[in-house]
C-alpha cells in the first residue's frame, strides 16, 4: 500500500474547525455536515478541513491529544515500556503531518509537537524492527500486533512479507517431493 493511501484513510478522521462563513447543512453521501456559522466550532473530516483552510475559510482546532504535555507523557511511556503503548489516535503520524504542514499557524508550539511525535514514531519503529527480527529468527507463525497503527504496519509490510514468502519457498524446496514449494511466479 502506498503511504499516500494510508494518508487518504487518515483524512477521514474528524477534526474541529471554526469557520468564518455561514452555510446550511451539507448532505454528503458519507453523512451530513454542518450547519456552518462564523465562529461556531463544527466537526468535519480532515480532507474538508484542509481544503477550507487552504481557501482561508476556517481555523483548525488541534485535536486534544496534539498537546505538548500529553505527548511528552506518551513519549516517556513509550521509551520505558518494551511493548507498544496505546497511541492517542490510530493516525497520529499522518494527522500530525497533515495538520502541521497545512495549518501550523493554528497550532501553538507546532515545532515542539513535530519533534515529540517524531520521537514517539522513532521509538516505535525501532521496537517494530526488533520484533520483526525476533519473529523471523524464531520462525514464528503468528504474532499479535496490538496498538500498531496502519502507517507503522505499512512501513514494514512489503519488506517483511516478501522476506517471509522467500523463506517459505526456500524452506519448502528443502523437503524433497514437496510440490508446494513450486515458484508462484512465472
Amino acid at each position: 500500500m502506498d503511504p499516500s493511501e494510508v494518508e487518504f484513510l487518515a483524512e477521514k478522521e474528524v477534526v474541529k474547525i471554526i469557520p468564518n462563513f455561514s452555510l446550511d447543512k451539507i448532505y454528503l453521501i458519507g453523512g451530513d455536515l454542518g450547519p456552518f456559522n462564523p465562529g461556531m466550532p463544527v466537526e468535519v473530516p480532515v480532507w474538508l478541513a484542509l481544503n477550507l483552510k487552504q481557501r482561508q475559510k476556517c481555523r483548525i482546532v488541534q485535536p486534544e491529544w496534539m498537546d505538548v504535555d500529553k505527548l511528552e507523557e506518551i513519549r516517556d511511556l513509550e521509551r520505558k515500556e518494551e511493548t507498544f503503548t496505546p497511541v492517542p489516535s490510530p493516525y497520529y503520524m499522518e494527522l500530525t503531518k497533515l495538520l502541521l504542514n497545512h495549518a501550523s499557524d493554528n497550532i501553538p508550539k507546532a515545532d515542539e509537537i513535530r519533534t515529540l511525535v517524531k520521537d514517539i514514531w522513532d521509538t516505535r519503529i525501532a521496537k517494530l524492527r526488533l520484533s520483526a527480527d525476533s519473529f523471523i529468527s524464531q520462525q514464528e507463525a503468528h504474532a499479535k500486533l496490538d496498538n500498531l497503527t496502519l502507517m507503522e504496519i505499512n512501513t514494514t509490510r512489503s519488506f517483511l512479507l516478501n522476506s517471509l514468502n522467500c523463506m517459505y519457498k526456500l524452506r519448502s524446496n528443502l523437503q524433497p517431493g514437496s510440490s508446494r514449494g513450486k515458484s508462484q511466479d512465472y
Partner: peptide
C-alpha cells in the same frame, strides 16, 4: 503456466468479531 496465488502468504489483520481456537500451523 498455471500461476496460483500463494495462500501461505502472511497477512496483517484486525479482528471484528471474536474468534476462538484458530489453529496456527508450525513453521518448522
Amino acid at each position: 503456466l498455471k500461476a496460483e496465488p500463494c495462500l501461505d502468504s502472511f497477512v496483517f489483520l484486525r479482528v471484528r468479531e471474536r474468534q476462538e481456537n484458530i489453529l496456527v500451523e508450525p513453521e518448522t
